[in-house]
Design a protein around this nucleic acid. Sequence first.
DNA 1: GGGATGATCCCA
DNA 2: GGGATCATCCCG
Length: 207
Amino acid sequence: MRLEREDYQRDGVALARYLLGKVLVRQAPEGETAGIIVETEAYCGEEDAACHVYGGKRTPRVQVLYGEAGHAYPYIIYGLHILLNVTGGPPGHCALIRALEPLRGIEIMAARRGGQVPVTALANGPGKLCRAMGIGMDCYGQDLCQGSLYVEAAAPSRPFAVAVGRRIGVDYAGEARDYLWRFGVEGSAFLSRKLEFSAGFSDKDAK
DNA sequence: GGGATGATCCCA
DNA sequence: GGGATCATCCCG
């Protein structure tokens, strides 16, 4: 079942936690691909030195971050990779999807990644998962409550413990670099990197 | 207009 | 460890 608008009405941290265990789905001409979200990061608006809207920046690129919750914010990094964020409730808040456990359309994902790739490495990074899922800048601003890109509530999900760590690649962000705003399914084999700490809570507590 | 800068990935 | 590779931003 596709998540609804209100499900996205959370701040960055709550949304990042909430999305763990949910299923990211992409419909494309080649077929459907889907994966369990096992790793996320929170980006929390104008106060967060690592967030793209830090300091109240309002450039065309970040406009969608000031719009309605539950929309896609993909952007290009290093001129060659695309990273997918999901917008949250408060202005500027979003969650970065960092890794998936492939669930459906694994053949399609492998083909998009260029052939022989172990399942554990198909989508274990924010750039890789966008490539595997066929997510491009054409998804910019797309409403996840309708359309070909969306998140479904987890099926009968097995309970899992949450692990936390520092966000990746934000060393420039002053003290915000040390916030424990990276979240993952503890022990998952599909993470981009290991998390440093046990969070002390499970998926049930994050609802 | 032009230079600097990445929320990464892959290979050595 | 380092290079690829370019959209975006900021400064003039």
